[in-house]
Design a protein around this nucleic acid. Sequence first.
DNA 1: TATGCGATATTCT
DNA 2: GAATATCGCATAG
Length: 211
Amino acid sequence: MKTRKRSRAANAPAAAKLRRLRRAELPADTVRLARYLIGKTLVHSTRSGVVASGRIVETEAYPPGDPSGHAFRGKTVSNGSLFLERGFAYVYFAYGSSFMMNVSSERPGIGAGVLIRALEPLDSIGLMRRRRGGAPLRDLARGPGRAAAAMAIDRRCDGLDLCGTHSIWLAAATRRRGGLAVSPRIGITRAVEHPLRFYERGSRFVSRTSR
DNA sequence: TATGCGATATTCT
DNA sequence: GAATATCGCATAG
């Protein structure tokens, strides 16, 4: 029987330092928001007061009119959150196994979002690891489906205000971020060439290193 | 570390 | 019925 190492971050000491982002701080433009979010913190507060958090190290922009964006064919019952004011969560289920979270990114009525693709685990790493079936640290939130699982994000989070006082919210950076790198997006079949994926250069927690 | 491939649920055609 | 903003496992190097 393997003994599980107790996480030193179990009591989330760094959580006290987290400053909630106000909507006015978010750029009102999809691509600018995608760049802005690199280095910021995504936080999950449980009912019992435990706080799990991670640095956003990788995002993708799906701007208005993007043929690979979920809003491209117009508003439907499932993609409605993309059409909210910036700073709301759009969560959906893909490939039969993964939830993914976007941050709505334009003015009300305009469908666009920023996909959160990877996190560097910060607080409550033990909790995140349990949610991820004991995966190694580097793989806890490396990939959009993994990041959502580590933060307990599912369809109930769809439509939540990430600038509000809900279980999932955005916070300011906890430390200076490294250089910003740009690449084409991953896993799409249309508008493949556009350089709309952003990540922190050198981070071991991005889902795929530069090529 | 890198690549290949099957599984799986929801949505839209 | 087809496609999908993926993951985890297997295999090879």
